[in-house]
Design a protein around this nucleic acid. Structure first.
Lengths: 225, 225
DNA sequence: TAGATTGTTAATCGATTAACAATC
DNA sequence: TAGATTGTTAATCGATTAACAATC
């Protein structure tokens, strides 16, 4: 296989990609305050990161800074947003209109971040036909046909975890290319299909673990005094 | 400073901690199927991970396996749940009763994972006094007093991002020790206060980046044929 | 100019993977 | 016993941090 193919198999380093949206918050604040240029030093200080790390992250997006000056704020914002694809919107389907599914359908911010949830599906006949934040809930039977007809690439799974694999199978069979999985279930999908897990449980586990360590440290410190 | 203090400053490796809940899903499936023992090989295969990685993660929880046999399923489940603190529940306050805040208040699963959201607060007078999933929404003025009286350690922030820092300040001042931050805002808190970020935007950015790479790879592969 | 900042190369660090002896 | 699996030590890998020349 030629090297060019191999080279595109990997996306940009994911830790870097995940930091980019946080830079944008700070940069837009700078813009609001009328700042014209900003340095990695300032960004890094605000986000409690290493300046070199920020510099490498920004370089990923293709921007070139000026030594001693920094980066033009407007240009940097545009560069990051283009890199993240926040300019051209992707359409997505959502499956499972429970508490979380409804909340996601209500997030207007997604559209400014390149994601438009254009349809919602549910297996529960009682939910089908109802309207959630202006979108009618459709029956699962319509999923496959609509994915193909509307060239949908992204499926969002917000069903109970026991149903997640089954829904993933249906989405993949219908031709979806990426799944945003809000269940803790580890999905099995064919090679080449992207699964991004967004279930909250791992984050909660990390929170508990860190809190426990912090409380123990504080307790020990107290005992030493 | 003595070495013992230093040693407790760090929690367990967070990547490991984040994987533990996913092991539990598989283990409980095993239990339901009547399996008595399970090996790292099986867990790793199911979750598409390296067996050694799984073994080290499990060792973190203190369990000891039997060569050639594996681990007793029941014991392993108990070991992980104890390690994660899913047995003894922590009380938490939630601030910001919008779409997401309401959805979180509706998640009954949190209680089985050691988190009980005991009260909700909002700055909007129109929301104060209403009831969400059986909990009355309280005014921000009551926050500080109740945190202290109820010995609350965890604050959940689900307000609009512009209000996040202000809410974090109020929580910290009231004596909270850990913040589960559902906004993209990078919070500034005193040393020793834990901030776990759970905003969806970084995950969405990773999804987009990976999808883009996957589509490009597929396209290149198509061109080569 | 002087010096803050960029871009880049090298060193470090931590997590993952490989290797292998011990063992039920 | 034979061999699958554990626990552990060593090697690898990737991300972060340090060092430093180039430069506006």
């Amino acid at each position: 296989m030629p090297a060019t193919l191999e080279s595109t198999l990997v996306s940009a380093p994911l830790p870097s990609v995940r930091r980019l949206p946080r830079y944008l918050v700070f940069l837009k604040e700078c813009r609001n305050l009328g700042r014209v240029v900003v340095s990695c030093t300032h960004i890094a200080e605000y986000l409690a990161l290493d300046p070199t790390l920020v510099r490498k992250d920004l370089a990923l997006t293709g921007i070139v800074g000026k030594p001693r000056i920094g980066y033009p704020v407007d240009e940097l914002i545009a560069s990051i947003e283009t890199f993240l694809g926040w300019n051209n919107t992707s359409d997505a389907f959502l499956v499972g209109v429970g508490h979380l599914g409804k909340a996601l359908l209500g997030f207007r911010e997604f559209e400014a971040r390149g994601l438009r949830i254009v349809a919602a599906f549910d297996a529960d006949p009682a939910r089908v036909g109802t309207s959630v934040h202006g979108r009618e809930v459709l029956p699962m039977e319509k999923l496959a046909n609509l994915v193909e007809r509307m060239h949908i690439h992204i499926g969002i799974i917000t069903v109970p975890r026991d149903a997640a694999q089954q829904v993933a199978d249906a989405l993949v069979k219908a031709g979806i290319r990426a799944i945003w999985n809000f269940t803790i279930t580890s999905l099995h999908v064919p090679e080449g299909i992207v699964v991004e897990n967004a279930d909250l449980t791992p984050s909660l586990a990390a929170l508990s673990s860190r809190l426990k360590a912090a409380l123990e440290t504080a307790e020990e410190r107290r005992m030493l005094v």
